[in-house]
Amino acid sequence: MSDESKKQLNRREFFSFVTVGWVAFTSAVAGLASLAFRYSYPNVTFDPEMDFIAGFPADYEEGVDERWKNGFGVWMVKQEGKLVALSNICTHLGCVPNWLPAELKFKCPCHGSGYYMNGINFEGPAPRPLERYKIALTPEGKIKVDKTKIYRYEKGQWDHPDSYLSV
């Protein structure tokens, strides 16, 4: 070997450089990617709780009660001796309908679906009625709404005793 080529890298050195470089590069990319992944999760979540205590049955008057709508996404509807917890998610594409007290209906701002007070759909594209959540009494006589359990009218689940409270 001439002096000249000694100054350049030999094969072994070349590979060790490449290895170090490659490992550094990969770990940098992996680190960045994991940071980016972490970034896609929020630091704090404001998701509504899945179940909550909704006071006493006597707190509710006949009709639609909106007090839990903003916090939990639930309307309490008392009608014909039954108190139900109605979901506020439109069954069409999941917008949030508004309760229009003057017209006695829920009306969705997205594509105009309309529901009667009891949650049955009657206008617009919504294919099925609003869903009911499980509603039950705690031992102290308070109402507990459990949003993990839903009751769908078209499946005949509204007769289920957990889907309403007799008041």
Partner: peptide
Amino acid sequence: ANPTWAPNPAKAPWYFLGLQEMLVYFDP
């Protein structure tokens, strides 16, 4: 964003408004 509230009218970006109008007649 607030999952329990929607603006009224709730409109998609303008280029999707044709689709949103279509949704009035169809299942999502």
